[in-house]
């Protein structure tokens, strides 16, 4: 049985002297959906970036365990799909070209049909050959979703998942999270109470601000 697990132990992040969070520990098992919340500046996006392996933690540790083996730091990107407002795609290419490039760089064996299928699902099929720079922000958000699920990741990290999306787009995200592989993990960082429904469990980062709190 393939089993993914995320274990965070005593995680701490500081920028220079400013503490973002400290003594953060939690575990997420396959099939679980976790919501991270907290005030503006509480470190939600910072935590998402650390969990995606693109930013270093200051101390403590986090690891992804798969099939009872730890996933190497440099392989984390293979199992992660990330969507966030600060994620920027290559806007000199079209949505299709972006996905095609990502598939090539990731060394995935998927053909154009599969890419078109994903674009269709994201509601971008008609505009798939237009440059991303000509897209509206909601459409850009949709391409990010397409690129996040392209490689069929085990872990979905969503930062402000419904920002810029219309009702249809929100439905698409609902469906995506609902139908996301049952052996996978979803972590949602959000301040929107309406997004809390995505998780079974909520962690509030405001509780990890100083050294006294436990």
């Amino acid at each position: 049985m393939n089993n993914i697990q995320l274990i965070v132990k005593n995680l701490k992040k500081t920028f220079n002297r400013r503490l973002v969070f400290d003594k953060l520990s939690f575990e997420v098992r396959a099939g679980e959906r976790l919501v991270i919340t907290g005030k503006n500046g509480s470190g939600k996006s910072t935590l998402i970036k650390i969990l995606a392996g693109v930013m270093n933690e200051s101390s403590g540790s986090f690891e992804y365990i798969f099939d009872s083996g730890k996933i190497d730091r440099e392989d984390i990107y293979k199992i992660i799909g990330l969507v966030s407002p600060y994620l920027v795609l290559y806007d000199e290419f079209s949505a299709f070209e972006n996905l095609k490039l990502f598939a090539k760089i990731r060394n995935l064996k998927i053909d154009d049909d599969k890419i078109n299928q994903i674009l269709e699902k994201a509601g971008l099929f008609n505009r798939r050959n237009d440059l991303v720079r000509t897209y509206s922000s909601g459409m850009k958000q949709r391409v990010k979703y397409a690129s996040a699920i392209l490689h069929d990741p085990l872990v979905l990290l969503l930062d402000e998942p419904t920002s810029n999306l219309d009702i249809e787009g929100k439905d698409f995200v609902d469906e995506l999270v609902q139908n996301f592989r049952k052996d996978g993990i979803v972590v949602v960082a959000t301040n929107e109470t309406q997004d809390f429904k995505y998780g079974q469990r909520i962690i509030n980062l405001d509780d990890y601000k100083n050294n006294q709190s436990k």
């Binding site: 693109v54 440099e74 392989d75 990107y77 990330l82 920027v88 795609l89 990502f102 760089i105």
Partner: peptide
């Protein structure tokens, strides 16, 4: 400058 560093580090390892 264009903010694409993140997507790049999400699709490939540093050596590549």
């Amino acid at each position: 400058e264009r903010g694409t560093t993140l997507i790049l580090s999400l699709i490939a390892n540093p050596i590549s």
